[in-house]
Design a binder for these strands. Structure first.
Length: 503
RNA sequence: GGCGCAUUCGUCUAGGGGUCCAGGACGCCGCCCUCUCACGGCGGUAACACGGGUUCGAAUCCCGUAUGCGCUACCA
């Protein structure tokens, strides 16, 4: 039998990293087994669910690089894939359960239930439903159903009730054997008074109808499995395999949520994280490759993925390691591929004014110049800002910079630098830059840090940054490309500094 | 409270009775490279929750305790 798995998000906002990892594990499992990946939208909570959220979640999944064979956007043999469009089916299944005597109408009001619950708690009895309506005769139930609101409850088989048992044992693919006793469960609602199904019920109906073979989901659903298996049994439906993936925790070891900072994958996309890095990191949160490698492509993960290597313990989300990993991907990416991903940011910054091959070539060189210093696309963009933005007053506003510039030799070095640039022209190559440095060495008698720091600060605008012999020629070349926003040329920088900072 | 799950360096993890005085990665610290910052290289710091068993031998198996988390809803 071919593998069929599903990811079932509730459309209540962007996809969060926890959901993303569950989706990734499902997808990896499906692809590894050449199975089918289904997206089903669980929007029975109509107060919180929106179509906009559904579109966002689907976009987030696509951004991660996941694809699916069946889903609300593309349909499929088991359409519809939105629970809100499957109400008829749930009513039919509930009717089947009613007919089989495995479920019953319950007319107790919420007030009744609240009262019963607190009474039970006061007497330290389990707060289970007291079966009042279970004991109603079929005739009475039918009669009241016409004029009173009711819910449909599933009856959890009690000891000695025929051949049925409320005990359930599953063999979780990640955690092994897990057993629940029937006594720990009360009769639970499957259809609300407004006719809407509850989660545990719709999930079972859908997973069965959609022929899901493996239910891979978050650990928070683990104890729900007890109810769900009971439902499968009452309906004589085959029970799928289960795999419960542990929760992702924040730094304080509580379940990851908004107050832990960025938790939606969209937020990471905005900051300039690459989907490949995101998938790689999330895959590693709970799973490890058999060969121990930590940086791997999604195809490698597909090839070696197995649920038996998924760790059952919860994992703390570590933004630092994610950032490191994203950096690894950026550092090994080609400049041209990064340029494509950065295009939107460059345009937003107003740096790109036209289109020409020389512009692309310049951008690629610029990207290569700074990419090792960046861990995100945002940082990479920031690292390029110095080309276009040369603010002398901000430059001398920095204490470290001012100290260097105020040293006795600096004035002379900058003066000679300007003279050299005027006389020999601005360096367009690394070699030309080196020659310029040699001339400045002889002219000023300075070398090492004493020589380079003033040059660096005046030309680059900061004491730290990329290599001068690459950056300065690029600056020169950039200042001559009209399709690019104005790059401040080396000579202009030297002049401005002399005028505004050094007397 | 009841039920369930989990517990190896700060974090992610490897390990599934002897090869483990526990290996890798992130972080942190130091050194090297170097005009600076990064990158990279090298080295260091740091863990089997606790208590009982089982066994010649336990991080690995069993029981208990502690702690954390989840469920116990007409949320999913």
């Amino acid at each position: 039998m071919s593998v069929r798995v599903r990811f079932a998000p509730s459309p209540t906002g962007h996809l969060h990293v926890g959901g993303a990892r569950t989706a990734i594990f499902n997808w990896l499992f499906a692809r590894h087994h050449h199975g089918t990946f289904v997206i089903r939208v669980e929007d029975t909570d109509q107060a919180r669910s929106t179509r906009e959220s559904e579109a966002m979640v689907l976009d987030d999944l696509r951004w991660l690089g996941l694809d699916w064979e069946e889903g609300p956007d593309i349909g499929g043999p088991h359409a519809p894939y939105r629970q809100s469009e499957r109400f008829e089916r749930y009513r039919t299944v509930a009717g089947e359960l009613l007919e089989r005597g495995r479920a019953y109408r319950c007319f107790c009001t919420e007030e009744d239930l609240d009262r019963k619950r607190s009474e039970a708690e006061a007497q330290s009895r389990p707060p289970h439903y007291d079966l009042t309506c279970f004991h109603l005769s079929a005739e009475e139930a039918r009669a009241r159903a016409g004029k009173e609101p009711f819910v449909v409850r599933f009856h959890v088989p009690r000891e000695g009730e025929g051949s049925f048992s409320g005990d359930v044992t599953i063999d979780d693919l990640i955690r092994g054997e897990i057993t629940w006793r029937g006594e720990s469960l009360g009769d639970f609602i499957i259809l609300r008074s407004d006719g809407m199904p509850t989660y545990n019920f719709s999930v079972v109906a859908d997973d069965h109808d959609m022929e899901i073979t493996h239910v891979i989901r978050a650990e928070e659903h683990l104890t729900n499995t007890h109810r769900q298996v009971l439902l499968y049994r009452a309906l004589d439906w085959p029970i799928p395999a289960f795999a419960h993936v542990s929760l992702i925790l924040g730094q304080d070891r509580s379940k990851l949520s908004k107050r832990h900072g960025a938790t939606s994958v969209a937020a990471y996309a905005d900051e300039g994280f690459l989907p490949e890095a995101m998938v790689n990191y999330l895959t590693l949160l709970g799973w490890s490759a058999p060969d121990g490698r930590e940086i791997f492509s999604i195809d490698d993960a597909v090839a070696s993925f197995s649920l038996s290597r998924v760790n059952p313990a919860p994992a703390v989300f570590d933004p630092q390691k994610l950032a490191w990993m994203n950096g690894q991907y950026i550092h090994s990416a080609s400049a041209s591929s990064l340029r494509v991903r950065l295009a939107g940011r460059f345009r937003a910054a107003g740096w790109i004014r036209g289109e020409t091959a020389s512009l692309d070539a310049w951008l690629d060189d610029a990207i290569d110049l700074v990419k090792k210093g960046a861990q995100t696309l945002d940082e990479l963009t920031d690292a390029l800002r110095f080309f276009f933005d040369h603010d002398v007053s901000r430059l001398i506003g920095d204490e470290e910079n001012r100290q260097v510039l105020e040293s006795p030799s600096s004035g002379e070095i900058i003066e000679k630098l300007r003279e050299d640039l005027e006389l020999h022209g601005e360096p367009e190559s690394s070699e030309a830059y080196q020659e310029m440095v040699e001339r400045l060495k002889t002219a000023t008698g300075q070398k090492g840090k004493n020589l380079f720091m003033p040059i660096r600060i005046v030309l680059m605008g900061a004491a730290h940054g990329p290599e001068l012999h690459r950056a300065v020629p690029l600056m020169t070349r950039g200042s001559r490309i009209s399709e690019l926003a104005p790059v401040v040329s080396p000579l202009e920088r030297a002049r401005r500094c002399l005028e505004q900072a050094l007397r």
